[in-house]
Amino acid sequence: MKITPGSVRHWKHKGDKYMSGTFYNEYEVFSKRAPDKEFIHQFSLTAPNDEIAKVMAQENFLRREPVSDLWVVRREHILTLSEGKKHSLKRLDNKDYRNTKGYGYLRKKWRQYEQNPLDEKEIMGWAKE
């Protein structure tokens, strides 16, 4: 392969240097896949203002999947946790009493009384009755 260099450099830059940077406001995009689904975070984009941000959002991140709703949020309006504060999210694994796991013995008990246990599967299934 022999190189034939392209045309010569003729760049004299004016650019956006004098701009304050507000053209590149940051927005976070969230979407719902279907009416009965929850919002999930997609990605972030830059836009000069809210109106433009809204018309950018779907086509930038959701070109191949159904979307039933969209939130576009200015990043500065999102409250976040610092790295240190994220330690506040940790907890011990000793909270069986908050879950069905802590009440598993009931299954056996109800059998003694010849009844079916009303577990999660059974109860959530009532929606379809």
Binding site: I3, T4, P5, G6, S7, V8, R9, H10, W11, H13, K14, G15, D16, M19, S20, T22, F23, P48, N49, I52
Partner: peptide, 26 residues
């Protein structure tokens, strides 16, 4: 072979549209 052509295309487009970015600066 095409380094400068492609850079120049990108440069031209960027400068050509600078007015749009400027206009929408808050």
């Amino acid at each position: 072979p095409k380094s400068q052509d492609r850079l120049n295309l990108r440069r031209a487009a960027y400068e050509n549209n600078a007015w749009v970015r400027e206009a929408l600066e808050a």
